Amino acid sequence: MKTGVKRALVLELFNKQGGRCCYCDRAMVIMPRGRAQNRLDAATLEHLMTNRRKGWTRRDNMAAACRECNEMRGSAMDWLMFKTYRRGELWELIGGCKDF
């Protein structure tokens, strides 16, 4: 994907999501090209379904995620499971399974 197209898509998704990360829901920032893009709260383009799992670069498979979540997720974990983990909901779910 060309850089200009990628940046436009990140901005579009950023605005659509209200400037919040699709995983941890914290506020993100849009960084100018070449400026501190390694900030953990910088908005990045994220494949919800990874390429390893037939996740193509299409709008319906993309979201804006903070750099920290994007790098932490990798490609091993399903996006919805990772979202549940990042928001602390996974521990609530596991805690509710004490009766088993």
Rank of each mutant, 00 (worst) to 15 (best):
residue 28 M to P: 04
residue 1 M to A: 08
residue 41 D to C: 12
residue 80 L to E: 10
residue 24 C to F: 08
residue 43 A to Q: 02
residue 26 R to G: 07
residue 17 Q to S: 09
residue 5 V to G: 13
residue 76 A to N: 14
residue 85 Y to D: 00
residue 29 V to C: 10
residue 11 L to A: 13
residue 65 A to K: 01
residue 44 T to P: 13
residue 72 M to Q: 10
residue 45 L to G: 12
residue 70 N to R: 01
residue 100 F to K: 12
residue 92 E to V: 04
residue 89 E to Q: 14
residue 16 K to D: 06
residue 93 L to M: 05
residue 32 P to K: 11
residue 98 K to P: 00
residue 87 R to H: 03
residue 18 G to I: 09
residue 75 S to Y: 12
residue 16 K to C: 03
residue 33 R to A: 13
residue 72 M to F: 03
residue 26 R to P: 01
residue 59 R to E: 12
residue 63 A to Q: 07
residue 18 G to M: 11
residue 13 L to G: 04
residue 46 E to Q: 08
residue 84 T to V: 12
residue 69 C to Y: 02
residue 70 N to H: 09
residue 23 Y to N: 03
residue 90 L to W: 13
residue 4 G to V: 02
residue 37 Q to T: 08
residue 18 G to Y: 02
residue 84 T to M: 15
residue 37 Q to N: 11
residue 20 R to L: 15
residue 26 R to D: 08
residue 65 A to D: 08
residue 6 K to E: 08
residue 1 M to L: 05
residue 80 L to W: 06
residue 88 G to Y: 05
residue 56 W to T: 05
residue 97 C to Y: 01
residue 80 L to D: 12
residue 57 T to H: 15
residue 29 V to N: 13
residue 50 T to M: 00
residue 51 N to L: 11
residue 54 K to N: 15
residue 63 A to S: 11
residue 1 M to N: 04
residue 2 K to P: 15
residue 85 Y to E: 02
residue 75 S to F: 11
residue 16 K to H: 11
residue 28 M to S: 02
residue 42 A to T: 10
residue 34 G to Y: 08
residue 9 L to A: 06
residue 33 R to G: 02
residue 54 K to Y: 10
residue 88 G to N: 07
residue 20 R to V: 15
residue 16 K to Q: 14
residue 55 G to V: 05
residue 39 R to S: 09
residue 100 F to A: 15
residue 61 N to A: 06
residue 52 R to P: 00
residue 12 E to N: 06
residue 13 L to R: 09
